[in-house]
Design a protein around this nucleic acid. Structure first.
Length: 466
RNA sequence: GCCCGCUUGGUGUAGAGGUUAUCAUGCAGGAUUGUCAUUCCUGCGACCCGGGUUCAAUUCCCGGAGCGGGCGCCA
């Protein structure tokens, strides 16, 4: 539990009064919040007040607070912010039908004073507690209101938890958090399109990945590093799982192989899922309450068992061929093919040992480690959940001569990468790492079918505001 | 970028070549109530843009824009 110190505006949070109400009965408190609803039109009035820690009922009575203030609150609009002073009391229990068990005692504040901090306009662009479903576009245009909805708030609370647990785990395995530049000069490492920009008088780009820089940190003897930061890709993709700016959770570690960092990853995901299952059921229940209202299946946090299955590339191709699909060794495994694999392995699973041909220049290969057709395999891997790719990773090439050969064979000019390859000329540890899409992991955890749900202010092809 | 679909009050929807354009939610007013998704009554509020067909288009046709789904692209 956090320490919610009193502030200039409030003595207690609403969550505190909910949780410790019994100890606070009779105490004078000042609380603040958004007015979610008010009920009653006569000589009394009930206000549902909400802050970032919970909800609480405030009870107003004409002869306690005065007719004028009672009227003011009764006329106040939903989502206005109010400050109440009053006394904590136990709520009168609701009437229950014969045979039903009464709910546990709950608490309220009997108001003696009120201040309107801000009055909300009407109508709201979207209702916080309304039962109608709301289109994603409307929600994203009004994210500040969308976030006030309980299940949306729960998703972003979970997002913060996932990052926290992930960090925690890596730190226990000796990793240190780093930050790498997001403005880069080198044209490209191949593959994806970059967003160009001007860095004073020099053409530059927004970084597509911390890849080369986290490797430089390893070459610098940092041993084990991680970074949680943005990556930018100027691709014209338009799908439920792609964004043009996204948060990448990256690690890099010395003296490790592809198999070693797969181990780090599965232990980290296991830790995250275990902690969420133990600590954050409240958020899951909030999401499920919403899902039930929308007639969606509830979600549950099933801690995956270790180790995750490993289906190497050759085996995956075989599996897809056995399902009757036209696919050859050397082809990419696309979404429909992933459905075939996911039918057998619905949860997290690794896809290691891709053809070297298909992997970037910095991926390591063991000479002569060949696939069924005799082509060179690489030490690159993916992590999928169902049909969706979560991670791409691998052991890196640490021999500078091989690295430069790889660059040339990919049609790149080694001289453009001197800032990187120079790091390998003065002793280089074998190392490996991966990059994990945080939003995609959250999709799995929260049952979201669109990555935009799990990103506060998503940037896609059609959206740069808000 | 390709294929398919959609666009109706603030929000989410129903629907038809001529309607008083449906329902829910919301909002406003009133009655009731230690209420708690309050209840009840009354009212308010909408057919994406441009062109065409037609006596008549929000409805049909064409184009545009926006959105959604699938795909492609994507270390």
């Amino acid at each position: 539990m956090a320490d919610w110190h009193p502030t200039a505006y409030r003595t207690h949070t609403l969550g505190e009064i909910q949780d410790r109400g019994a100890d606070l009965v009779g105490t004078e408190v000042t609380v603040c919040g958004f007015m979610e609803a008010n009920r009653g039109k006569g000589a009394i009035c009930f206000v549902d007040l909400r802050d970032g820690t919970g909800k609480l009922q405030v009870f107003l009575k004409g002869d306690t607070i005065g007719e004028e203030q009672l009227d003011l609150v009764q006329r106040m609009t939903r989502e206005s912010t109010l400050q109440f002073t009053g006394t904590v009391a136990q709520k009168r229990p609701p009437k229950v039908k014969e045979g039903e068990t009464p709910p546990p005692p709950s608490y309220e504040v009997v108001a003696t004073d009120v201040h309107v901090l801000t009055r909300a306009n009407v109508p709201l662009p979207l209702g916080i507690t309304d039962t109608v479903s709301i289109g994603l576009d409307t929600r994203l245009d009004n994210r500040f209101l969308d976030l006030r909805r309980a299940h949306v708030n729960a998703m972003f609370t979970l997002r913060a938890r996932v990052l926290q647990y992930g960090r925690e785990h890596l730190i226990t395995e000796g990793f240190k958090e780093i930050n790498t530049p997001k403005i880069i000069a080198s044209a490209s490492e191949g593959g994806t399109n970059l967003f160009p920009m001007m860095y004073f008088d020099t053409p530059a780009f927004l970084s597509q990945s911390p890849q080369l820089y986290k490797q430089l940190a390893i070459l610098g003897g940092m041993e084990r590093v991680f970074e949680i930061g943005p990556a930018f890709r100027a691709e014209n993709h338009d799908t439920y799982r792609h964004l043009n700016e996204f948060i990448s959770f990256d690690i890099e570690a010395a003296w490790m192989t592809d198999e070693d960092v797969m181990g780090v990853q599965e232990r980290m995901i296991h830790h995250i899922w275990k902690c969420v299952a133990e600590n954050d059921q409240e958020q899951i229940e909030t999401i499920n309450a919403y899902r039930e209202s929308q007639e969606l299946e509830p979600i549950s946090v099933e801690v995956p068992s270790l180790p995750f299955p490993r289906i190497d590339y050759c085996e995956a191709i075989q599996m897809i061929q056995d399902a009757g699909e036209e696919i050859q060794w050397g082809d990419d495994i696309d979404s429909s093919h992933c459905d075939i694999i996911a039918a057998k392995y619905p949860g997290f699973h690794f896809l290691p040992r891709w053809p070297m041909e298909m992997k970037p220049f910095y991926i390591h290969h063991v000479k002569g480690e060949n696939g069924v057709t005799g082509e060179q395999l690489s030490r690159g891997f993916d992590l999928n959940y169902g049909r969706d790719e979560m991670t791409s990773g691998g052991q890196r090439e640490h021999n500078v001569d091989v690295l430069e050969d790889n660059l040339r064979s990919k049609g790149l000019n080694p001289e453009d990468f001197d800032f990187y390859t120079d790091g390998f000329r003065f002793g280089a540890p074998p190392h490996a790492g991966w990059g994990l899409g945080v939003a995609r992991l959250l999709m799995v955890l929260t049952g979201s079918r669109n990555v935009r749900e799990t990103v506060l202010f998503p940037r896609d092809r059609h959206r740069v505001t808000p």
